[in-house]
Nucleic acid binder design. Sequence first.
DNA 1: TTGTATGCGTTATCAT
DNA 2: ATGATAACGCATACAA
Lengths: 356, 356
Amino acid sequence: MTDRAPTLSDVAALAGVSYATADRVVNARGGVAEKSARRVRAAVRQLGYIRNVAAANLSQRRIYRFAVVLPAGPNAFFAHMRALLAEAQDRLAADRVALSIIEVPAFDAGALAARLMALAEDDLDGLALVGTDDAEVLTALAALRARGVAVVSLVSDLPDAARDAYVGIDNAVAGRTAARMIGLGHGGRAGRVLPIVGAVSAPDHAQRLNGLRAVLDQHYPTLTLAPEIEGRDRHEEVETQLTARLATDPAISAIYSIGAGNAGLIRVLEQWPGDRPHPFVVVHELVAHTRAALERGVIDLIIDQRPGDEIALALGRLREIADRTTPTRAAEPVVPALYVPENLPPATAASLAKET
Amino acid sequence: MTDRAPTLSDVAALAGVSYATADRVVNARGGVAEKSARRVRAAVRQLGYIRNVAAANLSQRRIYRFAVVLPAGPNAFFAHMRALLAEAQDRLAADRVALSIIEVPAFDAGALAARLMALAEDDLDGLALVGTDDAEVLTALAALRARGVAVVSLVSDLPDAARDAYVGIDNAVAGRTAARMIGLGHGGRAGRVLPIVGAVSAPDHAQRLNGLRAVLDQHYPTLTLAPEIEGRDRHEEVETQLTARLATDPAISAIYSIGAGNAGLIRVLEQWPGDRPHPFVVVHELVAHTRAALERGVIDLIIDQRPGDEIALALGRLREIADRTTPTRAAEPVVPALYVPENLPPATAASLAKET
DNA sequence: TTGTATGCGTTATCAT
DNA sequence: ATGATAACGCATACAA
């Protein structure tokens, strides 16, 4: 409990070596006699020395250079994320971190890989990306990491070997949660659950679907699963396919929208025939139109992956790695939030970002 | 897009004054001719200068001194919070903030006020407290703030004038959310909801109860409200009163536990007679025993105020104020999280903190 | 009213 | 293999 935190000078003095020597062992620069090194390490332990990151950064004039890469396009969730990132940009500027937000065409592994390759020239400190598990993308990431860029996968995970950390939800958990809530909404009665996915081939969507199925099987045997609709995350597609399906499968009592394209779903629900009981509807991601639908009672539940928290976590992770700080907190997955009309957070500027 | 961020020296040079003069106007120290001041301000704007907080702190050898004051005692939620704070302590040490965790006897305004008064001698930078709205406490807080200590109320709010910010949930929102979930759990059937409060005189509990009532009235007219039990946040008390009530009011189909003492509630539920339908049970705060009960299916939903996030937010707020950083982000209330068995976060060391 | 110089703890460069 | 020392951007004591 000394009044001031021990500095490296204190360490050097205690170890009986010069400041430079102490610095060499602490920062593993090599070229130090083992005897001296030992004494320095002992002094570090004894004093409880911890490196002052702020001072270190100052001396290096360090500016953290981070980039976030996410899909362009009309998807409301990513539009929201872009807005949140733009807000973060301003706040971060005060902390000496330069954040570039990069959009690449959605569903285009080639374009993504090319963009990543270009990024290698920018000597970034860290990169967070919403990536896909394609060979060319993984190659580009490997190149970046070889250059010392910290890589965090965001929203959608990549193979362990391709990134330093993952920040996002566990999609199986999301699917299981949806099942539980649908079960609750049926209050013990029988029912029929219709999943709407973007594509069954998308791993994220498949995981949610599996989670849904597992919990329905285990806890709600009276709820059957209708064959899923593939809406390709496009709202027109969802609208037409859903309309058709509802005509042929009148028993549907719940809908779980696993992907995007919810605008189409909501249009169908808005025009629900008065003589047919309303289905219990669960969708993903809190954005302007899903929020409005929840407030109007058109849908019942939103499972949200809290993109604001995800961004904060991802940037924090990048910073930890860049600071070579011991990553004390393990990589806990983000817990999906459940929103009903009563616990909706206040609408913010970013959450009102319109689809582009 | 210059390569390096502008410094105050740059500002001074552009303004044609010395470094010290620039510093005087930027930090409002006074004693500068208006003519010079104007030129400096113009230069600041033109260059987009922002103070480098890290450098400033370094030059001052600044260590943030923060304290968190919370109630001692067996309450599992606060035990959890203490554990989270202890974890935060270590992380924060690396960032040059000294965090002291202070426990005061629960429900003892005099002791709290006395402790706060003693704190005034410590020249803190900031204080977060779980306080009560008592005159002596407010007086002590006023004294602290007069000494320049930033004050944030945590978990339970205080009058606007008594603190700089509030970090915690909106308790009415919590009650409304509980009502919605209980409504869902009944799936349209009639029912009877029993609230268990600590004390109706506690503002937080009253707010939750009002929220519950409002949404039941508005959206679920077939659900009636039973007279609330006052369990004084003690589990034995809850157990005996609840047992008695269940005997006299057999229609009860849902229980909303608004306060603490859930161990007693859970004991009663564990011994539920096999011939009586299980009630739908909602409790507050994710702690070891509520988590276990949820996992076993004894209770149905946990409304959690995410103490980890609250702590991070509170400390962030204190830091913003201490840094005299423009508080860009408005004071959004913490959104209560909803946990069902499927979306429970992984158990951490802190979350297993036992009741003391 | 204005200006100069020193130290904060670290990195990095240039000596020994 | 080791040591001295000039930045880094800021606050501040001191000088003019």
